[in-house]
């Protein structure tokens, strides 16, 4: 895919700017401010029906709509890619209802909405990363009752999460949790970073950009202000390890980017390529060439 900038198209005047009505935006904005004031804490909000099904990023879309201004440059990635269905449709949604400019270049974007990845390129001050979150509660699969998980957060009772990680070790010999790897924020709240691979976890803490998390179906917003401490849970004898497939990218030869494994024929052939399409495209444009590049 050729990376490109698209100029703002004319906004559809049948909708309010950024689709949501002003009262809804105020409600979401108040939740975002409390989320920033209490990093890692899940703020309940009155999530609205959006013109897309739950599970397609309604939480992220509502957060993006609440923070977006006319001058923003908007980028959407789905598992790192700019050109997948979810990314393309959310990008065109905001082109239509907000008249906002879009881009696929991470460095040029002011708002990046993401499903399940953090861009490879370091984010800078002035950028906002909006995560689409399916299950915001890190303790949910250990304790299904919201009344109980809320109490556990209030009492800072996270022993159960450590038991889960310990059971991983006793069963597999290492911590087998590979995505949605829980982090402790500023030594207080345990937070689900959304299903990003644990490879991305080290980028959560001390990030220059504002990170906002929106869960539409579960009606929760949470946030990490810039330069916030977010530590992946681990044990002294089993320290956290950010893992990735042990290959270079087949197209751009990057050694340190997160890779997708792609099956290329029915004879067991496969290649590994960067999951971040913008990062890979930029590297190829700079002349880097992997072993599978055409």
């Amino acid at each position: 895919m050729n990376a490109q900038h698209e100029e703002p198209v004319t906004m559809d005047q049948d909708y309010n700017f950024a689709y949501l009505d002003e009262q809804t935006k105020r409600m979401i904005r108040r939740a975002i401010l409390k989320g920033l004031a209490i990093p890692g804490y899940q703020v309940p909000f009155a999530s609205r029906e959006m013109p897309m099904p739950y599970g397609w990023g309604t939480g992220g879309v509502q957060v993006s709509a609440a923070v977006m201004t006319r001058d923003d440059k908007f980028k959407v990635i789905d598992q790192g890619a700019d050109d997948t269905t979810n990314a393309v449709s959310i990008r065109s949604f905001f082109q239509r209802v907000a008249g906002v400019a879009t881009t696929t270049r991470t460095a040029d974007a002011t708002i990046v909405q993401t499903r399940h990845r953090i861009p490879e390129q370091d984010l800078v001050e002035g950028q906002i990363l909006v995560y689409q979150v399916p299950i915001p509660e890190p303790l949910r699969f250990l304790e299904p009752r919201e009344s109980e998980t809320r109490k556990m957060h209030s009492l800072e009772e996270y022993g159960l999460m450590h038991v889960k990680l310990y059971e991983d070790i006793s069963r597999h010999g290492h911590i087998a949790t590979a995505y949605s790897y829980p982090v402790k924020v500023e030594g207080r709240y345990v937070m689900d970073p959304s299903p990003i691979p644990k490879f991305d976890n080290p980028k959560l803490g001390d990030c220059a950009a504002i990170q906002l998390f929106g869960a539409g179906r579960e009606q929760r917003i949470y946030a990490l202000p810039p330069y916030t401490n977010a530590v992946s849970l681990d044990f002294e004898d089993h320290p956290f390890e950010a893992s990735k497939a042990d290959h270079p990218c087949g197209l751009c030869d990057a050694q340190n980017s997160y890779l997708d494994e792609v099956i290329i024929d029915d004879a067991g052939g496969r290649m590994f390529v960067c999951s971040d399409t913008d990062f890979c495209t930029m590297r190829q444009a700079d002349g880097h060439k992997g072993k599978d590049a055409a």
């Binding site: 700017f17 950024a18 002003e22 935006k25 904005r29 975002i32 401010l33 920033l36 923070v67 504002i210």
Partner: peptide, 12 residues
């Protein structure tokens, strides 16, 4: 719509 969006970005 536009001015409150810009103002909120300042507050945020």
């Amino acid at each position: 719509a536009l001015q409150s969006a810009a103002a909120f970005r300042g507050v945020m």
